[in-house]
Write a protein that binds this DNA or RNA. Structure first.
Lengths: 185, 185
DNA sequence: AGACAAACGGAGGGACACCCCATATCGTAG
DNA sequence: CTACGATATGGGGTGTCCCTCCGTTTGTCT
């Protein structure tokens, strides 16, 4: 009975699940986050009903698609939090922005997590916010940034930049630095 | 024959055209730029074929929907260009950002005009860029902004902010000023 | 008023999201 | 190794949407 309580999925379920996420990653990267779900199912070799059973909404699918990338970013933030507090924050924002600008759909995904209506656990945006907060606090401790700076706002700004510069990492970096430096001489 | 060359539309054509734009404005403001075109046609009391005959694409419809607002903004930029060069640019960016954040779909619309594949005349983004350029040059002439500042980049940044703060003008203003001031003390 | 061009709208094709239920498959107990 | 029951599947059905064709209506000009 104790064995039953650990709900383990059937192997074909796991196989299909992984395959769907894998195929979705490729198609989202190629065609954007609005790809037809039926196309994903077809490409994965499963019926559309199966896709909908695994992922009740497009959100749920995208969540898993981007989960790996967000986790990698989170770890990167951890590394930077062990380095120079002066440069860590800027490096982090730059890498985050470029990554989001390069990964089709990710910027919109992160930004969408910002104004999340329901309390649906730790979204990717929340993960990013926590990572950013640590780096902002460290930068503040050596007075490398203005006091009172809101990590949330800063993250949203970086997300905004990557949202508007999708597929153009050069522009992403340029706009981010414009925002970080301000417009006054 | 000379009279024929001035292509004048039939009165019912004009009536339907105006009504469609009017209804579309309301529905886009309420439901976003992705509203069903059929819903717009239904609400306007015309068949969907008529809508497609008047507007060959969703772009074409949105172009007319936002045209009035963009024109109003352009005039406002003209006013500001006659005032204080030090404050004009900031006021302009602020009003632009708040307006775009308040007008559902406008931010995405302006941003979409930035990387426009085909040479489709003067889009709204181009109109905004010209308005911004004048104010940036005036601000530069009194050294109120860093030399070398790109009006295009600055406009894109404002669009990015309004894109990510849709329906939240307070946040829009806050993020814009964050970007204008920079993060360093 | 009558004729002709201009504009209309219903209907239908193709694509999509999502759901129902008969069927197939997996894991296990005997 | 086999048979059984729970689990998972997928074809097909519904409703919506975009877009187009074509027979019909409406405006305009003489």
């Amino acid at each position: 009975m104790a064995k039953q309580q650990i709900r383990t999925q059937r192997t074909d379920w796991q196989r299909n699940h992984e395959r769907l996420v894998e195929v979705a990653s490729v198609l989202v990267a190629r065609d954007g986050a609005q790809v037809s779900l039926e196309k994903i199912a077809r490409e994965a070799g499963v019926g559309s009903a199966t896709l909908h059973r695994h992922f009740p909404s497009r959100r749920a699918l995208l969540e898993e698609v981007f989960q790996g990338i967000v986790e990698r970013l989170r770890r990167r933030a951890g590394e930077l939090a062990g380095g120079d507090p002066r440069t860590g924050l800027v490096t982090w924002l730059e890498e985050l922005t470029v990554c989001a600008a390069n990964t089709r759909g990710l910027a919109a995904w992160l930004a969408a997590g910002a104004d999340n209506d329901p309390p649906n656990g730790d979204t990717c945006h929340v993960v990013m916010r926590e990572a950013t907060t640590v780096l902002v606090e460290r930068a503040m401790s050596v007075a490398a940034v203005r006091p009172g700076l809101s990590p949330e706002d800063l993250l949203t700004l970086a997300e905004a930049v990557s949202l508007v510069t999708e597929d153009d990492p050069t522009a992403a970096r340029r706009l981010l630095h414009l925002a970080l430096d301000g417009v006054r001489p």
